[in-house]
Design a binder for these strands. Sequence first.
DNA 1: TGCACGATGAAC
DNA 2: TTCATCGTGCAC
Length: 183
Amino acid sequence: MRPLPRRFYDRDTRTVAQELLGMHLVHVVRGVARIGRIVETEAYLGPHDLAAHSARGRTARTAVMFGPPGHAYVYLIYGRYHCFNVVTEAEGHASAVLVRALEPVQHLAGRCSGPGLLCEALALDRRHSGHDLLSAELYITRPAARREFAIVRRPRIGVDYAGAWARRLLRFYIKGNAQVSRP
DNA sequence: TGCACGATGAAC
DNA sequence: TTCATCGTGCAC
């Protein structure tokens, strides 16, 4: 398996969010590769995007978002679940793509529809924040057998506080896919 | 009476 | 975000 190259992530965040659909997210845990097909994503467009963590400035937690592309940004939400994001665009842009749902491909125990459940199934937590996605343990790759699909665009989930930003169509999912968290 | 569905609160 | 619980409305 070959990880997607750094330049894949170093592009417009909306483009990356859509092109991540259909890709395989891989986490190798104790020698076992847990693999899921990405079916739902959300784009977070940097410090001006009031729904993005980077909008409230650079902190110890969000520093990863301000760093170079192709790294994992994982944060704890509601004290209980984790959310897995990939950092996009050039260093300093502070943009990222949240992965919201996977279709099980290999060695995934439990559900992976929804950002919290997905992290549970892949055994991802804060310790992975900042991890390079061009690594052997945690990466995203293009599957050999690709399927055709249509992309649906919707407002993002759970960002009602973000004013006009909440209404923008920055959530993307594979049309008709059963694993999408909120069709 | 019981099911399906939405609203609500809790986990921190 | 996710889960459990509780209420409403509807059907039987």
